[in-house]
Nucleic acid binder design. Structure first.
Lengths: 229, 229
DNA sequence: ACATAGGTTTGATCCATCGCAATGACGGAT
DNA sequence: ATCCGTCATTGCGATGGATCAAACCTATGT
């Protein structure tokens, strides 16, 4: 996706070579000492890493937003998760990434070598536990999402999405969605048109307000919770 | 489900009190010493633990089969995984189980206290790593399944299911499915009728043979792989 | 301020899957 | 061996969401 050879992520993002080594003060894993972190930036729609590429780095979003996804051979896409500021992504127990990652908007990430995390886990039980807990958190989200994808109606999915985003990125009661309708559809297992229709209906019913297609205010969260099933 | 109060799993299975303490020789976690395991049996359709119950035990299937699932308030069900002999299930990083578990057929499991595993992980890095790896394995499965649920057609889902079961429980080229059509449907995000229709079509096309609805022989695995997308 | 391109909304139609109902086939119990 | 209850299959009509198409915004850069 987007003219990226099968090279490790850092080399891939040659456009913005803002490599800033940061010793210590690394909040990714309970601020563990001895870890060297770097910052890196990706432009909108730039690939961070591809599916099945070696998982040499673990990432944390500083600012911006990231989508991780799987593709079928004919182009159908399933987005597994959106990653917002402070979220960690790309953490793998196995050798390779199992989903690809792309910047949704211009994005800055912090990253550490996966190998250094494994070393730290080998000596520090707290780190090992943190790695497990983070993976378990991803699993929890995936399990909830399987229920959504397998058994919920379009409206229930959209209501769920709005509540998730409201919880994760609403500042002053206002949500500024970084992703387009197609991304939302590919996250919810719907088409972009169905997402748009559901949002329009919620707007008509007064459940939410728009100021631009991606600026949303929720007027009635309880109503959304009821719709979420 | 099936008249089970909200008590921890071991107490719940009062029907078959086959509690057999087994010191050592416990293959659940790379045969770690000092862990006490017990065996336990559940009858067909008996609940092993409920959603959001305390996750005090980790289980391994000895014989039989287990389904783990989530329910919506109106009864819609999403099965997250089927667990077959040797599979571990019920391993959680958090306090509670996030899916319920039921025996699909009469089933015997081995179990250890989750607390004893955590203790072992605190002193033995190998155990800690194994816990992480197992959770990561569950996550991988869930990610693949999200793609299936969100983006694949009914026939693609059924083809995928047949290949998964073939890989996991085919002995002499023959598959003996422990679960009914409804279970398969709730796993694949389909109705039982749609599953049945897909299987009938594959039978008509000569891709598989039946000897009883749950005894299946695959005649053309490559064809199924092509259908899986 | 304007033009443009990408993104979004909305409308009209189609179709894969659902939901219901009836029939049929096993497998377990007697 | 036979009966019976559960499970599976099949047919048919309904429908939610997909697909195709057009119009409409609104951010971005000129």
């Amino acid at each position: 996706m987007h003219t990226q050879p099968l090279t490790p992520s850092v080399i891939g993002a040659k456009i913005t070579p803002t490599i800033r080594p940061i010793a210590d003060q690394f909040g990714l894993l309970t601020g563990h000492a001895g870890l060297v972190a770097s910052e890196f930036s990706y432009r909108k729609d730039e690939e961070i890493y591809g599916e099945d590429e070696p998982a040499d780095y673990v990432y944390q979003v500083i600012q911006g937003a990231v989508r991780t996804y799987k593709l079928l051979s004919d182009g159908r896409r399933q987005i597994g998760a959106f990653h917002l500021p402070n979220d960690v992504f790309g953490l793998e127990s196995g050798i390779n990434h199992r989903l690809a990652a792309e910047a949704i908007v211009d994005t800055t990430v912090r990253l550490v070598k996966r190998r250094s995390l494994e070393q730290a886990a080998g000596t520090d039980v707290k780190v090992a536990q943190k790695l497990w807990t983070m993976t378990a958190g991803d699993l929890r989200h995936a399990e909830d999402h399987m229920l959504l994808l397998g058994r919920k109606s379009a409206m229930e999915r959209v209501a769920n999405f709005l509540l998730e985003m409201d919880r994760r990125l609403a500042i002053t009661g206002m949500m500024a969605l970084p992703m387009c309708r197609r991304d939302i559809g590919d996250y919810l297992g719907l088409t972009l048109e169905t997402v748009s229709r559901a949002l329009s209906q919620l707007h008509d019913e007064g459940v939410l307000g728009f100021s631009g297609a991606r600026q949303i205010v929720l007027h009635n969260r309880q109503r959304l919770r009821n719709m979420d099933a």
